[in-house]
Simulated assay, not measured.
Amino acid sequence: MQSSSASPERITDPVTGFSYPASWIAACNDKEGLDLVRAGLAVLTSSGMILRRGYTTGTTAAACCKAATLSLKEVPDEVSVLTPSGIRVCVAVEATHGTASCFKYPGDYPGDATAGIGFIAECNPAGNGISLYPGEGIGRFARDTPRNRKGDPAISSPALSSILAAIQEGLETTGLPGVTIHLQVPRGEIVAKDTLNPKLGIEGGISILGTTGLVEPWDDHLTKTVMERVRTSDRVVLTTGRTGLRYARLLFPGYDAVLAGSHLKEALGEVKGQVILCGLPALILKFLDPEILSRTGCETIEEFATRPEFRARMHASFLKGKERYPRLRVVIVDRNGNILGDSG
């Protein structure tokens, strides 16, 4: 009679696509926490510790608007929202007679500047379709940028799509043909002072963001886990955000793609094998050359990228990077995955 042993469980993060090593799973004794990891609502660290993901301002806004819509016909105490990552989350709300409020859940991310901030949505039936009016506490662009006009609300495309989809779900549930919603963040202008918005030329409040709809729980434990992945990989491609991570996987399928966020210096210090730095230009070029915007008259890399002199300055930053990290290859892409520059 042949005996067989159960193969070790495999868990893949549905948000990043990273397959957790069996040793990490074995080190975790939190069965309920592992269920959250499988669902993409938490991450597993190399020590077996589980850290919960939070919800972005976009997800929170979507929940608030949906709750306000539902409250025209019922009194919800929580609503479900489909995030841009395809993961559905539940958000606690207070809602009645067309007015709803909820608070942003930070997960296990102690550095979240917008943690706990409150949202309020006021909804009224109105004809057909959806009319959304961003109000108090939601930032607006103080100048034209390549993607936004002066006065536009600081709401990213993925976040806006999530909000409108959530409202549409509310309409389908209530049977209403259309609504007008006014969304506000009462403490947004105060909280925004502790974000990057002042440097980005966004005034009057916070940004409503969320590429995936979830906030990564960056802390010392997760940083150590990222560094271990970098240290043990023979071929690694580092990136700074979700867009970069997606294109890094497509461009370099034979490499271990690692989201290092703002921890590039630490990650590059741990590299033992081949390393590529791939992603959108802003964080990467500022990391390679902190003075890249000096004497350009531009406030952001996105603005500078429209200037004729951008490519020359970008390649100069590649050289500065080579001086500090001789084995480093840098590949800069735009939001559509087109390669803007490659240090080779």
Rank of each mutant, 00 (worst) to 15 (best):
S4H: 10
D342L: 00
V237P: 05
V81D: 00
D152E: 14
P253F: 11
R307F: 14
E309W: 06
C102H: 02
I276G: 05
R329W: 00
R246A: 08
V271P: 00
A92M: 04
L288G: 04
S262I: 11
G40N: 05
L183V: 14
T45R: 04
E94T: 14
R229Y: 10
L44S: 09
G48Y: 09
G261Q: 04
A26W: 03
S157T: 10
T16W: 12
R242D: 04
G116L: 03
G337R: 04
L164Q: 09
L160T: 13
L200E: 02
F119E: 06
E323T: 14
I292M: 04
Q184F: 13
P84E: 06
A67N: 05
T240H: 10
T57E: 08
I138D: 00
V331W: 13
A154K: 02
L283W: 02
M1R: 06
L171M: 10
D77G: 09
G58M: 14
L251W: 03
T96W: 03
T240W: 06
E228L: 15
R187Q: 11
D342S: 01
R231G: 01
G17T: 13
R10H: 01
L196T: 13
A95Q: 03
G205K: 10
W24Q: 14
T239A: 07
R140I: 12
E172P: 03
T180L: 05
R88C: 13
E270R: 14
I167N: 01
S294R: 00
G210W: 01
P326L: 15
D219V: 07
E169S: 08
G58K: 14
G111N: 07
G54L: 09
